[in-house]
């Protein structure tokens, strides 16, 4: 019940911020488009605008402070013993607020049989996210140390509650709270993001929330660094610390090496080499991460 209250309060704060974000326009109208290439980021696996595996402080969509934008994404990660997919949609309002939805599917394939779940057993979860940009400007604040800062929440509902309970998971639903700081260091052609996340999710929630080793939210760090090779191409690396709440299977941190390419203002393609470590006792889960994001 407490989770619901927190969500409702945050949603209220975000809505009122959206209402005041436009200043006092003489007419009610809004525009689409206007962001510079790649400055909306891509879509992270949880659905928020960001890097590949971590949210950034940028707001999704091409809109500026005068408009509305949106994105859809599909991400696939082929691992030695599993297949991971994420797809969803997000909307950005006035470069200030972002609402997102993503569905994640974790197909255990033949591994499911080995785990006693049955071949092709799939964990899936729905993730609803909201993000509010609170300070700074990642692009224009080149003369200031202050990064762009956003706070966000992700509420996740997993559809395999019985299995999660059987492996020691505490809950099939949960929420993450995070704060992200993003800054473009134009003089160095570098983009840096740091995210602090309060979470009790196991494997991002795919194996539920909390467990026999702990149920509390803990603070986890996430870092992205990107080097801009051209207006269209960024290469970089990400690292995401993970909690470890399940006794039956150690959970490792995630990291990736990525290249994101803006085909045009609407389409961004990302390829990465991602290493999710050990998942459900199956180690060395690393493979090719491919993501496509389309937006306006």
């Amino acid at each position: 019940m407490r989770k619901i209250v927190i969500l409702a309060t945050l949603a209220g704060a975000i809505l009122s911020a959206a209402a005041s974000a436009q200043g006092a326009p003489s007419r009610f109208d809004f525009e689409t488009g206007g962001k510079l290439l790649l400055t909306r980021g891509i879509t992270e696996v949880g659905g928020a605008g960001g890097g590949g595996i971590t949210p950034w402080a940028v707001i999704t969509g091409n809109e500026t402070d005068r408009g509305i934008g949106g994105t859809v994404h599909y991400t696939r990660l082929d691992l030695p013993d599993f297949t991971f997919q994420s797809y969803g949609a997000a909307i950005g309002l006035f470069d200030r607020v972002e609402f997102s939805y993503a569905r994640q599917e974790f197909d255990t394939g033949a591994t499911g049989g080995a785990l006693g779940l049955g071949n092709g057993f799939t964990f899936a979860q729905d993730i609803w996210g909201a993000k509010l940009r609170v300070a700074g400007d990642a692009v224009y604040g080149q003369d200031r140390w202050m990064p762009q800062i956003a706070v966000g929440v992700q509420y996740k509902q997993n559809d395999q509650g019985a299995v999660i309970g059987a492996v020691g998971g505490d809950s099939a639903s949960g929420y993450d709270l995070y704060a992200s700081a993003t800054k473009l260091y134009l003089s160095q052609s570098l983009l840096v993001n740091v995210t602090a996340r309060l979470t009790n999710a196991n494997q991002n929630g795919l194996l539920g929330f909390g467990g026999d080793l702990g149920t509390d939210h803990t603070l986890q760090g996430e870092v992205s660094v990107g080097y801009m090779i051209s207006r269209r191409l960024v290469v970089g690396a990400e690292y995401r610390f993970m909690p470890d709440n399940l006794g039956f299977a150690r959970q490792d941190d995630w990291y990736d090496l990525f290249a994101a390419y803006a085909v045009n203002e609407h389409l961004t393609l990302t390829a990465a080499w991602a290493d999710l470590g050990s998942i459900a006792t199956f180690g060395e889960q690393r493979g090719l991460f491919l993501s496509i994001q389309a937006g306006f």
Partner: peptide, 14 residues
């Protein structure tokens, strides 16, 4: 070169 372009853009952006 792109990285040199960005040296100017860093001054113009603010």
């Amino acid at each position: 070169p792109f990285r040199m372009q960005n040296r100017l853009l860093a001054l113009l952006a603010p």
